[in-house]
Design a protein around this nucleic acid. Structure first.
Lengths: 105, 105
DNA sequence: ATCGTATATCGTAAATATACGATAATATTC
DNA sequence: GAATATTATCGTATATTTACGATATACGAT
């Protein structure tokens, strides 16, 4: 029997995969770790702490920002980044739900 | 002051990003959802339930298998897939830890 | 206004991911 | 052992990601 393939993906599947994608590079996980520890951080500090060029760090920051996990506030010549708690809570719940049903073989 | 950039990434950062990468595509999240619900599933059933060609589903299954999140047992002409509970537990703990410190601005 | 600092964006090269048809491999059935 | 069924792999086209130097932008200080 052939099933319809019209439904594609659920909202949960799309949202979870987007959060996962945001965390799918060690540099971005490190940025989250640093922000978790420090609370806030400017770009230059992150550049010093990461093994990447300034342009590349900025690119990773943009990806995290676009995923909604972090936010950046311009403060004079710098940009101050921090975790976006609402999105982190959402992400935490999404992963907790995914990992909660371990009725395996 | 210039910091040393020799340490690159911690084991936690590398492992977490790998799990996240495995879950960074909606088709792979859907596969995990299906296996969570059904317990076990053969390739053909997953092909019917996903909006992708057989070769593509097989490719996604291999990625999930290589990440350690699922395992596949050959049963005659079929392959029977299921969640790998050890790895799921590990993944759950890793994400819980990452999301646990919400001391933001 | 000019200079220095901080950071984002542009352009681009190389690597990786995604998708699928075709084919190969393996097991079952006749 | 020939035919069928199931699934993995190969080959390949296209898209996306990753990385960095160069440049642009914006602000503060002189």
């Amino acid at each position: 029997m052939v099933h319809s393939k019209e439904e594609l993906y659920t909202q949960q599947e799309i949202e979870l995969s987007k959060i996962a994608k945001a965390l799918s590079h060690p540099a971005r996980v490190k940025i989250i770790n640093i922000l978790n520890k420090r609370g806030i951080c400017i770009t230059g500090e992150l550049v010093d702490l990461l093994p990447l060029a300034q342009a590349t760090v900025s690119q990773h920051l943009r990806e995290l920002k676009e995923s909604g996990i972090i936010k950046g506030e311009i403060e004079g010549p710098r940009t101050c980044y921090c975790i976006e708690p609402k999105m982190m809570k959402k992400a935490k719940e999404a992963f907790t739900k995914l990992f909660s049903k371990l009725n395996c073989c």
